[in-house]
């Protein structure tokens, strides 16, 4: 008896779900992404499956990380509220499809900016917010000081992305005859390396650093100086909406600019009251209004910094040595400001 009627359970809950306001936003005329987001009341931002430092879940169930902060910064720029974001987390296989089909408004997830992706996948990259590159980690007692000494070595590597391809390219170019040992899961790859099944392990350097943070004997391992690939990671948006592209791009630039100008989460309010120089005044929307073309409030940059801090603060908190960070040194890396020898550079706000 019970069984004959069970069908209703499914129908009922699906009916309950479909009566939610967020189910369908059907628009007759073509709305811009900004209009759609404003009408919906929150931003749909795509991150990846948890990756320490960039986007990971905390024990209270919230998303944190440097890429997550970009999502929150865009939400802050639009709504003045960094919590008006719905995070979507999909595998890297469907990340671009989920952007193309309108599921996500933007994508902020360790996606490498390449010409193929930028020109042929229907998406536009905005501005690089992290310069990564593939490297190697070895045990200190192996005595290896350079990747060129890895001749005939076995190297643990994860499948799925271009990591494996880069490794074989590097091996062939330098006649190193590296033997890749391939894993599908990062945790298993790390354990295999720790057990001594491989002489070295390769991944993006940020990934190596976060793996190393989980090793019991961190000081017994070292990341080799060579970087064998270029991985500029940048948020991306769908092609065809230049205003939306500008909003995301200039949000990233605002984070970098704020650091250049010395504006922090703590001092942004007092700086807005008494701008120390015209640049800061322009940036915070006190003097000239920089928001017109973006379609945002004139305090948009103020809201961003108030909500998530500047680039340096975000880096320190999630990528650097902060309590939640994964401990990647910024000094001397490409992710430092251009004024200190790095590559982080924002076009001027004027």
């Amino acid at each position: 008896m019970k069984k004959l009627s069970l069908f209703g359970l499914g129908a009922g809950l699906i009916a309950a779900l479909s009566f939610t306001p967020e189910l369908a936003i059907a628009d007759g005329h073509k709305m811009s992404t900004l209009e759609t987001v404003k009408k919906r009341g929150h931003l749909r931002c795509q991150v990846g499956q948890p990756s320490p430092g960039f986007y990971n879940l905390k024990k209270d169930g919230t998303w944190v990380g440097s890429d997550v902060s970009v999502c929150r910064a865009v939400a802050a720029a639009i709504f003045g509220d960094p919590n008006k974001v719905e995070f979507q987390s999909v595998t890297s296989t469907v990340r671009f499809t989920a952007l193309a089909n309108g599921e996500s408004d933007m994508l902020s997830r360790t996606a490498t900016w390449t010409i193929f992706r930028d020109t042929q996948l229907g998406l536009n990259f905005t501005a690089t917010n992290f310069y990564d590159g593939q490297g190697f980690i070895v045990r200190k007692d192996s005595g290896i000081k350079s990747a060129m000494e890895l001749k005939g070595a076995t190297v643990c590597v994860a499948t799925g992305t271009t990591t494996e391809l880069n490794l074989t390219d590097f091996s062939r170019m330098n006649n190193l005859d590296i033997q890749p040992v391939v894993f599908s899961d990062n945790n298993v790859r790390n354990e295999s390396y720790l057990k001594g099944n491989c002489d070295a392990m390769t991944n993006d350097k940020s990934g190596l650093a976060s793996s190393m943070a989980g090793f019991p004997d961190k000081s017994a391992h070292v990341i080799l100086p060579e970087t064998i690939s270029k991985e500029p990671l940048a948020p991306a948006v769908r092609k065809g909406d230049d205003q939306w592209h500008d909003i995301v791009k200039w949000t990233v630039f605002a984070l970098i600019s704020a650091e250049e100008l010395g504006i922090t989460q703590a001092n942004v309010d007092s700086m807005a009251k008494n701008p120390p120089n015209p640049e800061v005044a322009r940036f915070l929307g006190v003097e000239k209004e920089m928001n017109k073309g973006l379609g945002l409030d004139k305090k948009w940059a103020h809201w961003i910094i108030k909500s998530v801090g500047n680039y340096g603060e975000i880096y320190e908190k999630y990528m650097g040595s902060g309590p939640e960070g994964i401990g990647i040194a910024r000094k001397g890396s490409p992710n430092d400001l251009w004024t200190r020898g790095g590559l982080m550079y924002s076009p001027p706000f004027r």
Partner: peptide, 29 residues
């Protein structure tokens, strides 16, 4: 599951988004 949550929305009229959980439940059912 992939068809229901990722491919199916591509065939829908522009701007229409189907709840992911609902489409996953329908697919599993």
């Amino acid at each position: 599951l992939f068809m229901a949550t990722t491919m199916f929305p591509l065939f829908l009229p522009g701007g229409m988004v189907i709840n992911k959980l609902a489409s996953a439940i329908v697919a599993v059912c």
